[in-house]
Structure formats: structure tokens, C-alpha cells
């Protein structure tokens, strides 16, 4: 049984779909990458999983969570706001993008972690809380001493570790990390990613990692879902998707990525820009930017099974080979 099951998740803003029929499953201890450019709906999808969408956005579709040790599955999509408050942090928690904004600048680190624990577990004693805080700080590679500091006294990397400690405070089974390393330098980024990976093994966590950086995702995740204009256009194991992409968008994205030690120089870039959220072109949303598009692409492509546990939403999948793309002068078409 999977830990999380998402069925036909749709998020609309004034009737326009920001996320448009997303399906996926996540097993225990597994990590899923949500990749895509800004506005593709990856963060919205994550927030919808916790029912934390900003005002004005409406969500639809099934979200079922089966945390270990809980008998009945939790039907997130049927829960009320009060019902969700029990689920948030206890079962699903979130590592935010900007650690500086997510931490209260006038509270000690350990008070902020303690607050989260007390909010969800009424019966713990002060001693237990203190022990757990120290434990958490050590788990994320900090020292217990740092708990007595304020956020501004920590470096960017340390703050991001505190954010992870906060997310782990109530021992959730699923952690969603939204661009957890975007603001960090390479070395710090590698440290934080390594930490996330070791925690996942140690605590049997499931992880949803959101990033626009395919390199980061490739290193940390088991499976990857590539999103474009509110839909998953390709999903599969990281190995297969990276070595054998089956959607032109994934293919072009991977090609345009500079790889250290790989081929030098630039591959022909994808022309144009991502479509406005909620207002994608009809049919396959990628067709105006796709070098291989034909009239058939004006119809909606259904996800096709192109291999074991590997789906791609392209009329021409599976691709046995990729025709060479003419380098063209890059103009702004948007």
C-alpha cells in the first residue's frame, strides 16, 4: 500500500486550472521529485496536499494518506480545516523556501521548535520537549547549543537545517521540501541534500522534493515527475527519465542543462517562455515550443505507459530516437 495517493488533483483560480488533473502515488521511504519551471504548478500541488492553498484557489480531487501506525486512511480531500490541523505537521510537514522568512526573528530557535511540538502533543513534559529539541538539532547536524540563538545569528545553511528540524519535529511520515537549497551555495547545497537523504533512510521518511534544478533532483530522488502548465508530462524513476526521457519537454530541458564533465557549449534552447499559469495553449500545452509538434498535438495527449512505471503524455511516445533539432535564432515569442 502506498503512503500517499493523489488522484486527479485539480486546483483552479477563478475557474482557470493552475493544476490540472495530477495523479501520482508515493511509497513509504520513497522520494519523489517535482520538477518544472516557475508557474508550472509544482508548489501549488504541494500546498494542495496539505490543504494550505492561498485564498482564491480551489482544489478538487482525491488525496489519501496512509501513515504507518494509523488504522484508517486519512482522506485529506474530505477533511475540514480543523481536521487538517491535526494532519499538518503530525503526518505531513513542509520545509519552506526562504528560511529567513519562515522563522520568527525574535524567538530562540529551540522555542520555535518547542512550540511546534507542544502544539501537536499536549501531554509532553518540558523535559521531554527539551530532550527532543536537542535531539532534533543534532539529527540535522547542528549542536544543541545553537538552540539558544536567534535566526539572524545563524548562517544560511544553518537556518535551512533548522527548517528541516522544524519539519521533523512531530515525526511526520511525509516531508515536502520546496526549493530547500535554492538560496544556498554549491557546497552548502550539497551538505543539505546529503542531510535530507540520510534522514530519509534513517527515519524511513517519504520525501517530496520540489526544485527547478534537475541536478539536485537527480541526486536526491527515486522518482521524478516533470510538470508543465499544471500537468505531469512525464513521470518515472530518476534513472529511466534521465537516461531515456520520453517527453520532448523533458528531453529539451535535459539537453539544455550544462553538465560538468559533459559536452561543453550550449544545446539549442527551448524557444519561447512557459505559458501563463491557468491559461495554457490548447491540446498539448508544450506544442508551441516543441520542435516535433504536428497537427495531432492540438489534441490532448493522454499519459502513455512507455516502460515499467514510466508514463509520458506525448502523442509520439515512446520515442525510439530523437531527431536532431535545428539550432534557430532565439526570439521572444511570448
Amino acid at each position: 500500500m502506498s503512503l500517499l495517493e493523489v488522484k486527479d488533483l485539480t486546483v483552479t483560480h477563478r475557474g482557470k486550472p493552475i493544476v490540472d488533473g495530477v495523479d501520482f502515488e508515493l511509497n513509504r521511504g520513497e522520494s519523489l521529485a517535482l520538477a518544472g519551471e516557475s508557474g508550472c504548478g509544482k508548489t501549488t500541488t504541494a500546498l494542495a496536499l496539505m490543504k494550505m492553498l492561498p485564498e482564491g484557489l480551489k482544489q478538487k480531487g482525491g488525496i489519501v494518506l496512509r501513515p504507518p501506525g494509523v488504522e484508517d486512511p486519512i482522506n485529506v480531500h474530505r477533511r475540514t480545516e480543523t481536521g487538517m490541523q491535526v494532519v499538518r505537521w503530525r503526518h505531513i510537514s513542509l520545509v519552506f523556501q526562504g528560511a529567513m522568512n519562515a522563522l520568527d526573528p525574535v524567538q530562540h530557535i529551540d522555542d520555535q521548535i518547542g512550540e511546534v511540538i507542544r502544539l501537536h502533543e499536549r501531554k509532553v513534559t518540558g523535559k521531554q520537549v527539551k530532550a527532543r529539541i536537542d535531539d532534533l538539532l543534532v539529527t540535522v547536524g547542528l549542536t544543541a547549543k545553537l538552540g539558544k540563538r536567534y535566526p539572524h545569528q545563524l548562517s544560511g545553511g544553518q537556518r535551512q537545517r533548522v527548517m528541516i528540524a522544524l519539519a521533523l519535529a512531530c515525526r511526520p511520515s511525509l516531508v515536502i521540501a520546496d526549493e530547500p537549497t535554492t538560496a544556498l551555495d554549491v557546497v552548502m547545497q550539497a551538505q543539505v541534500l546529503q542531510l535530507l537523504e540520510s534522514l530519509r533512510e534513517e527515519l524511513d521518511l517519504s520525501l517530496i522534493l520540489i526544485s527547478h534544478d534537475l541536478g539536485v533532483l537527480a541526486e536526491t530522488c527515486d522518482r521524478i515527475a516533470v510538470m508543465y502548465a499544471g500537468r505531469i508530462v512525464e513521470i518515472g524513476s530518476v534513472e529511466t527519465v534521465f537516461s531515456n526521457p520520453q517527453h520532448p519537454y523533458t528531453k529539451r530541458l535535459l539537453d539544455s542543462l550544462p553538465v560538468i564533465g559533459g559536452r561543453r557549449g550550449l544545446a539549442p534552447p527551448i524557444p519561447g517562455g512557459p505559458p501563463d499559469p491557468g491559461d495554457p495553449p490548447g491540446g498539448c500545452a508544450f506544442h508551441p515550443r516543441c520542435p516535433y509538434s504536428t497537427d495531432r498535438c492540438l489534441e490532448d495527449p493522454p499519459p502513455v505507459e512507455v516502460g515499467p512505471d514510466h508514463l509520458a503524455a506525448c502523442h509520439f511516445s515512446p520515442w525510439s530516437s530523437w531527431p536532431e533539432v535545428e539550432p534557430q535564432k532565439v526570439r521572444v515569442d511570448a
Binding site: 557546497v187 547545497q189 550539497a190 534537475l214 541536478g215 541526486e219 524513476s237 542543462l257 564533465g261
Partner: peptide
Amino acid sequence: ALVTAVPVPTAKGR
């Protein structure tokens, strides 16, 4: 160290 820290977009890099 910098070079090894760079994430590689091929499955399970380093």
C-alpha cells in the same frame, strides 16, 4: 571540493 559538490543530472551521480 567545489567540483564534487555540483549535483549531476544523471541518476545517482556521486
